[in-house]
């Protein structure tokens, strides 16, 4: 099963349907190790479905997905993936600290190591001073950041983030992107979905998805020069068949 290639994720001919409805229509792509790979597309395009399969929660109807050389889904791989869902999956009655230690223990983190990781992750998302507050008192942006901290907690090799920066102010968004850059430089592969075009520009490579189909793939500059566009938005429109 283990490939000698450097690719982190390999998606081969993946189709996913829910009953009659085809949500992912034969997508194949690779994500290299240490890369920040963006999945760009409007809501309802199938981004979340694809990302859930990468996170090992959902399974492809046909086709194959392997992550770090192992065919998914596989329970043991969950330890190597950090997943941040689109909705803030937090226990609102508990404090941030309690949420973090709960999820930490699911990854068998404990003691000094857990403490150190909680400190690191909360500092990264700028929530250090709010560690002991009850999550229901958090603002929307703070909840998003806490979700990100939880995804980072067990030092995953692959980070899968579904719309991570919704509701986060531009200054903090910038600092989070700087951190993602640093994580990627340290070898973490990051897969991020977004429908914000300026965020897409920050990814190393982009996959454009529309109606469950991969309509284009390449680096942001590549996609722009190939289509002769000045923005990612124009490039998306071009590939979407609605040439401006």
């Amino acid at each position: 099963m283990t490939h000698e290639s450097s690719s982190c994720v390999e998606i081969r001919d993946v189709i996913r349907n829910f009953g009659e409805k085809i949500v992912i229509e034969r997508i194949s792509l690779r994500v290299e190790r240490g890369e920040i790979f963006g999945l760009l597309g409007p809501s309802g395009s199938g981004k979340t479905t694809l990302v859930k399969m990468l996170a090992g929660i959902d399974e492809a109807t046909s086709g194959e997905i392997s992550l770090l050389g192992v065919k998914l889904p596989k329970l043991a791989m969950m330890n190597r993936i950090g997943y941040m869902a689109q909705s803030d999956a937090l226990y609102a009655e508990l404090s941030a600290q309690e949420n973090l230690s709960f999820f930490g223990s699911l990854f068998e983190l404990g003691g000094a190591r857990l403490k150190e990781r909680i400190h690191y992750a909360m500092k990264l998302v700028g929530l250090e001073e709010h560690l002991n507050r009850i999550v229901s008192e958090y603002s929307g942006g703070m909840k998003r950041r806490l979700s990100l901290a939880i995804a980072l907690l067990h030092e995953p090799e692959v980070l899968i983030l579904d719309e991570p920066t919704v509701g986060i102010d531009p200054i903090l968004r910038k600092s989070i992107w700087n951190e993602l850059e640093a994580l990627s430089a340290a070898g973490t592969t990051i897969i991020v979905t977004t429908h914000v075009m300026d965020e897409a520009d920050k990814c190393h490579r982009l996959g454009m998805i529309r109606d469950g189909k991969l309509i284009a793939i390449g680096s942001p500059t590549d996609l722009k020069t190939r289509t002769g566009s000045s923005t990612i938005e124009e490039a998306f429109l071009h590939y979407g068949g609605e040439r401006p």
């Binding site: 929660i57 969950m78 909705s87 803030d88 999956a89 999820f103």
Partner: peptide, 14 residues
Amino acid sequence: TSGTLERLLATPLR
């Protein structure tokens, strides 16, 4: 409904 189940299923929890 709160999405935490999905989050739990993204961990090695059986």
